[in-house]
Structure formats: structure tokens, C-alpha cells
Amino acid sequence: MATLHTVNKSPFQNPTLISCLGHAKAGDAVLMIEDGVYGAMNGTALSDAMATLGGDVSLYVLGDDLAARGIDAARLADGVTSVDYDGFVDLAANHDRTQNWL
């Protein structure tokens, strides 16, 4: 009974990603899309918090949104998996529900 959470806001502007990670349960997946992808970067002021809060969930990022923003895959934090739109669909299909954090 796992949930796919999506977040589309930058964690530097808006606490939605942090709130989402605070409510996601072990085994859930969190997919960062649109401006949410900034939360997937390493070496930021939020990287440590992300690693701690996201410890027992699977973290994903939409690669097309990363590319659009000029963020190289090398800047992805450890443990974050980049997916394309097909991967997004697979994630939605493989979870019991999707919760879009607006």
C-alpha cells in the first residue's frame, strides 16, 4: 500500500518538499518534478536535510525537468534516481495512490 508523492516546488522557496518527506511512509516514492528538481541537488544547504528526511523513501527526479534547468546528472544527490516520462508513468502505475503536493 505505497504512495507516490510528487512535488513541483523548489524547496528553497517553499517548504512543501520538506513537509512531503515528513509525511511519506517507509517504502513510499517521492518524485521531484518542475521546480521540485532543485531539491535533488547535492552540495546545497538542504542536501543534509534531504538525506535525513528521505532516508526510508525512494527519491526520484524527472530528468527532463533537470535538463531543462541545466542541472547536470553529476549534481544529483546520492540515492536519487533520474526517470523520464515513461518512468513517471511506471511509478504512478506501480503505487496504490498518487499524492500531488501543491
Binding site: T3, G22, K25, R97, T98, Q99, N100, L102
Partner: peptide, 18 residues
């Protein structure tokens, strides 16, 4: 609590966010 809220969310068929 936050943990209980997470449980409430996890027991739904449909979650709609606003």
C-alpha cells in the same frame, strides 16, 4: 500527530491536494 496524519493519508483510495 504528524505520524498519525501520515497514517491517515496512507489509508485513502484517493488523495486530492489543495
Amino acid at each position: 500527530s504528524r505520524a498519525e496524519m501520515a497514517d491517515v493519508m496512507a489509508e485513502q483510495d484517493v488523495v486530492l491536494s489543495f
